[in-house]
Computed example of a mutant assay.
Amino acid sequence: MTDIDDTDEVLGAVSTAVLAVTRHLSVAEVLEVIVRSARRLLGARYAALGIPDDEGGFAEFIADGVSDRQRERIGPLPRQHGMLAALLRGGETIRVPDIQADPRFGWWPKAHPVMSGFLGVPIVDGDDVVGIVFLANKISGSEFDERDERILTLFAAHAAIALANARLYERSLELSVVEERNRLARELHDVVAQQLFSLRLTARSAAALLETRPAEAARLLERVEELSGTAIDELRSVIVELRPAELDSSGLVDTVRKFVELAGRTHGVTTEFSAEGELLLSRAGEVEVLRMVQEAVHNALRHARADLVTVALRGGESIVMTVGDNGEGFDPQSGTPRGLGLLSMTERTERLGGRIDIDARPGEGTTVTVTIPCEQPTARQASIEGES
């Protein structure tokens, strides 16, 4: 890295990056931040981080410095061979001025970028090599030196901790989801199922008495109406718990603002947020818009390699959500880019009766615009009454 000469300052930057990755929600996001930070901190043209699988390949392989189009031309994920295998099996750092001149070098696909200087470090957890991180081609043209090696080794040590923390977090999240599903299932069984069972018995009794004792049947039918209303209320109370609590405490605008700010800090990119006008949305509509913002922002951060992401919400005759980035973009004629999640956003937009537009150009970023109708007074009032 050419513009940071003081070791303490470099190590501080490494620690800041590692602290940021521990706040991510998935192992994949952790890997992306690690490899991107490593490349920037040490001034390399290419960087990659791989987590091996048990079948001679890689369960995760995150590369930085290679465009999506070039990655598609390269082909499938690499196998555990050549220098990658040496890192995984030897468990020692490898630093060479020319990777192709090293006898451990194997081969790479035709579309693979040409690499010369190479610095690779195993990611070790106890006695196990759980991954590798490597850099290639110093941008300055110089070779990787001992200082680079020390810093990347420190980064790899922190990466092992970050990976362990992320996996523990994902596991705890999975357990929480299972526990919540079980709780909701018990709630539905203990409350709603009992109400429906009583409703069914009362309806059968009313049907049996309809011809011989119509007055008694009428009374039971009133009871059926009462029980059905209670069951609906109980079911609604369970469903409401699936709504993000922050939407009720802070509202849609503040919830989106906090999310955008946190995403920027976590990924180390600049984010901008703006909102204007009244956003007339039902409770369900607010959840859908929030999820679409999260999806679009995550796509920009994970796949577009953007350093600026903007989010805007605008109310009025219709509600417009816009998420833009200055990343790599893509050619719409070549098909949907990997990881865009367009289907999910399209389905959410259709549920709200709106439309989604994608404006993308190679090298010029991507803008996602979702336009949905705001609630008409009658529909809005019906929504409010249904939630009360």
Results as ranks from 00 to 15, higher is better:
Arg95Lys: 07
Phe58Lys: 02
Gly363Ala: 10
Ile372Lys: 00
Leu84Gln: 01
Glu295Lys: 12
Val289Pro: 00
Glu187Met: 07
Ile34Gln: 08
Val10Gln: 10
Leu42Gly: 00
Ser67His: 04
Arg305Tyr: 15
Pro244Leu: 03
Pro373Cys: 02
Leu235Gly: 07
Val238His: 02
Ala300Asp: 01
Val121Leu: 01
Thr7Trp: 09
Ala157His: 08
Pro377His: 13
Gly277Phe: 09
Val320Cys: 02
Gln376Arg: 14
Gly106Gln: 13
Glu347Met: 14
Ala160Arg: 01
Ala215Asp: 11
Gly75Met: 05
Arg147Phe: 10
Gln195Met: 14
Ser318Leu: 07
Gly327Tyr: 00
Val114Leu: 12
Leu173Phe: 12
Leu11Gln: 03
Leu247Arg: 00
Asp8Arg: 15
Leu11Lys: 04
Gly50Met: 07
Ser250Trp: 10
Phe155Trp: 11
Ile161Arg: 02
Glu222Asp: 10
Met321Val: 04
Met292Asn: 11
Leu135Val: 15
Ile161Leu: 13
Ala312Lys: 06
Arg351Gln: 09
Gly354Pro: 00
Thr271Tyr: 01
Leu41Cys: 03
Ala111Arg: 10
Glu143Asn: 12
Phe105Gln: 09
Leu242Ser: 11
Glu278Asn: 14
Leu308Phe: 05
Leu247Gln: 04
Val368Ile: 12
Arg79Thr: 13
Arg200Glu: 08
Arg213Thr: 07
Gly363Ser: 03
Val311Phe: 03
Tyr46Trp: 06
Arg40Phe: 06
Asp127Leu: 14
Leu25Trp: 01
Asn165Thr: 05
Thr266Arg: 12
Asn165Phe: 12
Ala63Ser: 14
Val130Asp: 01
Arg200Lys: 11
Thr7Val: 11
Arg200Gln: 14
Leu281Ile: 15
Gly353Asn: 07
Leu281Lys: 02
Leu119Cys: 03
Ser228Arg: 15
Gly90Trp: 08
Ala48Asn: 03
Leu87Pro: 01
Gly126Ile: 01
Asp6Val: 06
Asp54Ala: 14
Gly268Met: 02
Glu222Leu: 11
Leu262Pro: 06
Glu187Ser: 08
Asp127Pro: 04
Gly141Tyr: 06
Arg39Phe: 01
Glu149Asp: 05
Leu19Asp: 11
His189Gln: 09
Thr270Ala: 12
Val35Ala: 02
Gly43Glu: 06
Arg150Trp: 04
Pro113Lys: 08
Ile232Ala: 13
Ala275Pro: 00
Gly353Ile: 08
Ile151Met: 05
Ala275Phe: 06
Ile358Glu: 09
Asn299Ser: 15
Lys110Tyr: 10
Met115Glu: 10
Val124Cys: 04
Glu328Ala: 12
Glu234Tyr: 08
Leu340Ser: 14
Asp254Gln: 15
Ile358Lys: 01
Ala63Thr: 15
Asp145Cys: 07
Leu119Asn: 00
Phe61Arg: 06
His267Pro: 01
Lys258Trp: 04
Ala245His: 07
Ile319Ala: 09
Ala215Ser: 13
Gly131Ala: 08
Gly50Cys: 12
Asp102Gln: 04
Arg186His: 10
Ser344Gly: 05
Ala215Gln: 10
Ala160Asp: 01
Asp357Lys: 11
Arg23Ala: 10
Ala47Gly: 12
Met321Tyr: 03
Ala231Asp: 01
Gly75Trp: 09
Arg305Phe: 14
Tyr46Ile: 05
Ala164His: 08
Ala296Cys: 15
Val192Pro: 00
Ser344Met: 13
Glu226Val: 04
Gly315Asn: 02
Glu387Ala: 08
Leu279Ile: 05
Ala263His: 03
Thr153His: 02
Asp357Glu: 15
Asp127Phe: 07
